[in-house]
């Protein structure tokens, strides 16, 4: 079995290692951007299948966010939330495609040739999920400052009105950092555990038995993308709540 906790470098771009997760991230970015351009400039009055599918996703998710945040905030928050949802969902599902983890490329390391997997699921790399979590939390602070005003926002964290409020402010600062950790570990843990589970299943019984586990991984991948999306919206909602 070939299981590695960290993403493996595939090639070096003048001493900067390009890992297999990063490679897949670039490919997926290309796919998503092309899809966006295609929908933006190629939309028809009578929609084809791709367009109707995306319209269903758009309308249902917009309604969902609108129910939680209200019509004033939703137009600002929605693009960020749907970007996270789509990217994580597509990344999780792409990790289950054939060829992920089974195509190898040679990499010369200290004079010997090592064989590295060419593709790896995007979110099975802690760097990626950590980056996504940091983006989500910084966006959350941005929305809080934008809608509450800076003085009102900072009062939540640094407050000298009473000793209790001061310590509550410190706890709020710690909780913002723990949100980053829980976001990134949840996504990484689920996806990487799925990869390990599938690898073990392929190793034990290579034929037919892994199929239900693949179906479970499809469900888990979509579920985790939805949980990330939902938690992002809930954190924005909580940070905008009046005290």
């Amino acid at each position: 079995m070939n299981i590695s906790l960290a993403a493996e470098p595939v090639f070096y771009l003048s001493h900067i290692p390009i890992t297999n997760s990063l490679l897949v991230t670039w490919i997926l970015m290309l796919v998503i951007v092309l899809l966006g351009i295609f929908i933006r400039f190629g939309s028809w009055v009578i929609p084809n299948k791709v367009q109707s599918f995306l319209e269903v996703i758009y309308e249902s998710s917009y309604k969902f966010v609108n129910d939680m945040l209200g019509p004033k905030i939703t137009p600002q928050v929605y693009p960020m939330a749907i970007t996270l949802l789509l990217f994580i969902a597509i990344g999780n599902l792409a990790g289950l495609l054939p060829g992920m983890g089974s195509l190898f490329v040679p990499l010369e390391k200290h004079g010997e040739i090592e064989w590295m997997p060419l593709f790896r699921a995007v979110t099975a790399d802690l760097n990626m999920t950590f980056a996504l979590a940091i983006i989500a939390i910084i966006a959350n602070q941005y929305f809080a400052i934008k809608f509450l005003g800076f003085s009102h926002y900072i009062k939540k964290f640094i407050n000298f009105s009473s000793p209790i409020n001061f310590f509550v402010g410190i706890l709020e600062i710690i909780s913002e950092f723990s949100k980053i950790l829980s976001f990134s570990f949840r996504l990484f843990g689920n996806v990487f555990a799925g990869e390990v589970l599938l690898a073990v299943m392929y190793y034990l019984v290579p034929f037919a038995v892994p199929i239900p586990f693949i179906m479970m991984e499809v469900f888990v991948g979509l579920m985790q993308a939805f949980v990330f999306f939902l938690l992002f919206i809930v954190f924005v909602k909580v940070s905008l709540a009046e005290h």
Binding site: R186, G189, L230, L231
Partner: peptide, 16 residues
């Protein structure tokens, strides 16, 4: 689902 995500996170920490 939200509550499940929070409860499950603890299991995921120990899994990691």
């Amino acid at each position: 689902v939200l509550g499940l995500a929070f409860a499950e996170a603890i299991a995921i920490y120990s899994l990691v």
